[in-house]
Structure formats: structure tokens, C-alpha cells
């Protein structure tokens, strides 16, 4: 598909596919043909550490999420001692699980379970039985929505009663809460963006976060998640780069993207040497009732954290 877009359709820029895994593959093709590529849903550092010059990503490195989460949960739950980490063996979920295990250990927590599950796993009961035996205070699971819905349900089915359950990035998507109903209540997660953020004087068609939220909800009758925001911001960045370059010449656009340092409704975008957006303070969210509430950072908090009973 990427070859066709470049050779047959003669595109000037590629917007990357969903996820770190797919982005990593297409980035190699774009690099070979020296076509700028904007990735809006790829956050694993391993996608960006290949020395590519034409790849730019609007999400910040996913490893930055875990350290702040460990410190935040330790502050909210002084009894927190043991964490179970259970991740999908795939680029982004694996990176997140690994980063959390490292952050938890360096934060003084005891990682009592740390395993990966294969892509296509239909059942988590064996792993969850082992997690239950380890009696963790915190269960941290990564994967995609269908994995996390099944995992959360089986945690409940098998009687795991950890007061903190984190599923990355489950609650950031509406289908996660819809697929779980009451079982979603209390599940925490990290995300790259939440509509509670309040940036103003941004470049592009939405000068504030509120403007974007308003337009999005009017058009789609649902709240935007970080994927919507990151991808809309990537389009803002692209338009800005073409304006700065004064043409659609691939090299000129690439150079303009590399020099980007702007504020969008989604937040600041300033690509580092590896093409990733520089680290930002990323929100911790929790499902409370039917709402997604923001627990961290302090500047956009709208609820206090609740433990699962």
C-alpha cells in the first residue's frame, strides 16, 4: 500500500497507520523514498530509534508515562507494595509493560508477576490465576481494547480484588467502557491527551482545546480521545510545515517539520532529533461511573482517585 501511494499516486506526505507496529514497517518504506511521514498513533521509542530522517510523531515517548504513574499511585495509596504486570507481546503494549516494571522496581515496589501474553490470546485465566496467587495491590495490564475488556472481565470472574487496576490505554476509548459496563468502574489508565486540557492561542483551525472539543462533539456526538486529537494536531503541523516551506517539495517539507516548534490545541509540538514530540506531562485518567475523570497532572485534575472495592 505504501509503495502504491508513493509510486502510483505520487503522494507528497504519508499519514502513518494506527499503532507503533504498523508505523515501524511503513516508516522504512517512506524513508527509502524520502517521503515525509507523520505518525499520530505511534509512541514506542523503538519506532523512532532507527535513524530515520523523514518520520515525525506527535505522541510523546510512552516510557515517560510510567514513572509519574508509580509516584502518583504511591502517594495516593501508601499501602501500595506489590504490582503485577501483564502485557501483550506487541510493540506498544510490550514497551509499556516493560517500562512500568522498570519504573515500579526503581520506585521501590515489588513486581510480583511480570509476564507477556501472545497476540491472539483468547483466554487469560491461567495468567490471572497466577496473578491472584501473588496477591498484588496493583494490576497493570497492557493491550488493545479487546484484550483489555476480556482481561478486566476475567479479573472479576476469577476473584482478583486488587484496589488498583490499570489498563493501558483502555479507558481512553469509549468502546472499552461500553464493552465492560459496571466492570469498567475504577479502572485507571495513562493517556497522551484529555479534552480537559486548556491550551489557548494555538496555531491551526482550532485556537483553543475547547474549540476542538466543541467542533468534534458537534460532528460526531461523542467525546474525542487522544487518537482523534493527536491526528488532528498532526494535520495542523503538516499544514504549518507546508506554509513555512512555501511548497510541497518533500525535502523542504521535511526540513520544516524538523524545525517545528508550535503550540496546537493538543499541546506543544517540538520534534526531537529522533522525530518524536518532546516529552510532555501526560494525564492519568480513571473511569468513575460513566465518566472519564482526570487524576493527574494537578493543572487539569477534576476528580480524586477512587480505589476499587
Amino acid at each position: 500500500m505504501a509503495e502504491k501511494l508513493i509510486n502510483d499516486d505520487a503522494v507528497d506526505v504519508i499519514m502513518a497507520p494506527f499503532g507503533s507496529g504498523h508505523t515501524k514497517i511503513i516508516a522504512a518504506v517512506a524513508e527509502r523514498y524520502q517521503v515525509p511521514m507523520l505518525a499520530c498513533v505511534a509512541s514506542s521509542v523503538s519506532v523512532y530509534d532507527q535513524g530515520f530522517k523523514y518520520l515525525f510523531g506527535t505522541l510523546a515517548p510512552n516510557t515517560g508515562m510510567t514513572e509519574s504513574m508509580v509516584e502518583f499511585f504511591k502517594a495516593k495509596s501508601p499501602d501500595l507494595k506489590k504490582v503485577a504486570v501483564y502485557g501483550r507481546d506487541d510493540v506498544f503494549p510490550k514497551a509499556m509493560a516493560s517500562a512500568l516494571a522498570t519504573s515500579a522496581e526503581s520506585g521501590g515496589l515489588d513486581v510480583v508477576y511480570n509476564e507477556l501474553y501472545a497476540v491472539g490470546t483468547m483466554d487469560h485465566s491461567a495468567a490471572i490465576s497466577a496473578i491472584k496467587s501473588a496477591d498484588p495491590d496493583w494490576v497493570y495490564m497492557t493491550g488493545y481494547t479487546q484484550d483489555l475488556i476480556l482481561g478486566r472481565k476475567q479479573l472479576a470472574d476469577l476473584g482478583v480484588t486488587a484496589p488498583i487496576v490499570t489498563m493501558v490505554t483502555g479507558p481512553a476509548y469509549r468502546e472499552f467502557t461500553e464493552g465492560l459496563g459496571e466492570l469498567a468502574d475504577g479502572v485507571t489508565s495513562s493517556t497522551w491527551w484529555h479534552h480537559s486540557t486548556a491550551y489557548t492561542d494555538a496555531v491551526g483551525p482550532w485556537s483553543t482545546t475547547a474549540d476542538f472539543y466543541s467542533d468534534f462533539t458537534a460532528a460526531y456526538k461523542t467525546d474525542p480521545d487522544y487518537v482523534h486529537a493527536s491526528c488532528a494536531a498532526a494535520a495542523d503541523v503538516l499544514v504549518n510545515a507546508i506554509q513555512v516551506a512555501g511548497s510541497k517539495d518533500k525535502q523542504a517539507v521535511r526540513d520544516a517539520l524538523a524545525a517545528t516548534d508550535i503550540l496546537t490545541f493538543y499541546g506543544p509540538i517540538d520534534f526531537g532529533d529522533n522525530g518524536m514530540n518532546q516529552g510532555r506531562e501526560m494525564p492519568i485518567i480513571q473511569v468513575q461511573g460513566e465518566e472519564i475523570m482526570v487524576l493527574y497532572p494537578e493543572s487539569i485534575v477534576n476528580a480524586d482517585m477512587k480505589m476499587i472495592k
Binding site: 507481546d89 507477556l116 501472545a118 485465566s125
Partner: peptide, 16 residues
Amino acid sequence: IESFAGYTIGPQNATT
């Protein structure tokens, strides 16, 4: 088989 393999040698290897 998958259940015992997942418990003893890890869920990553159960389907294999």
C-alpha cells in the same frame, strides 16, 4: 494444555 502451559511456562508460550 493451554491452561497448564500458561500457568507453568507463561502465557506467552501457551498457544505455541
